[in-house]
Design a protein around this nucleic acid. Structure first.
Lengths: 159, 159
DNA sequence: TTGTAAATAAGAATGATTACGATTTATAAT
DNA sequence: ATTATAAATCGTAATCATTCTTATTTACAA
């Protein structure tokens, strides 16, 4: 389980300064594992505790956290990228994303590996997989819900 | 094999006018099956034969062709969407994309179907798969090539 | 040939992201 | 604790893909 202090210490050790805004951004991700946020989401969150904040700072901090593999970027069909706390699992894997609660759940089989052998005429060197649906808790609550989130609403892609 | 006249006739039958610019755009896709183009690509191509052309016209025409399933949109990690002639295959399938020549090759197995049964706690309702690599001809030419296209360069996602 | 709605051009507006110059601040050295 | 310094930040402007607006042009049916 990732810890805010841990992450900040890691950044400090790498020569980066430990500012309150950085702490806030790291905390947002660490406190909501599996949840995805847009840059704007992060901006409004941090703004609530630091009244003057530049979007540029958010983007630079996200870039920093990406480089240190503390968060992951998810590029979607809609124009705004989303970010989430990096998965602890270091080996290759994918996620399923719940269309209702937005949580990412890691899965530990790669459906592409299975087909690699069958592909004689094509060398696979990279791939992305994005799977959307409903997790068990949301599936149950969907039954008594007037408007479940629609597929493709906020869809994201991941390596 | 799709045919330009055929497509234009289909559009006309649906009540749309048959303009030279539309013809040019349709021809670009029909004459290069499997090849992907950005809106800017299409714009520069048509501009070479129609000196005054609005980008808006390109986008509106692409939208029209999308609605009639004549082309498909591929949303990628980079900011510009790409488009290609729609695959004739009507049933669910995916493509592999060559990183060198940019061609899309349809594959007729869905790697996600296999794992659907194994997922007990998650209802899959949608997915995207994007596979990149080198097709056989490009693989052979890559051997004597100083700079092969890098993975992730112009990566695209597709349903 | 002509009337009409559709199509287009040109440019402005939007929204996400990045870049920039000036100012502030965390941190290490004093 | 004070200070020097480079890093971080702000505020804003720039950029890029895409969409919107309005006036003008055009395909096509009558």
């Amino acid at each position: 389980m990732a810890d805010v202090g841990e992450v900040l210490r890691q950044l400090k050790a790498a020569g980066y300064k430990c500012t309150g805004k950085r702490q806030a951004i790291v905390a947002l991700f660490v406190d909501h594992p599996g949840q995805t946020f847009s840059a704007k989401d992060v901006y409004t969150y941090v703004l609530s505790m630091y009244p003057n904040l530049s979007l540029d700072t958010v983007y630079r901090t996200l870039e920093l956290l990406l480089q240190h593999r503390i968060i992951e970027r998810l590029d979607g069909a809609d124009d705004a990228a989303r970010f989430r706390l990096a998965c602890e699992e270091p080996s290759h894997h994918h996620h399923v994303v719940c269309l209702r609660c937005g949580k990412s759940i890691p899965i530990h089989v790669c459906p592409i590996e299975a087909m690699r052998e069958e592909m004689d005429d094509f060398d696979i060197v990279d791939h992305t997989v994005a799977i959307y649906g409903y997790c068990r808790p949301c599936r149950e609550q969907n039954a008594g819900q007037s408007r479940p989130v629609q597929p493709h609403e906020g869809m994201v892609t991941e390596p």
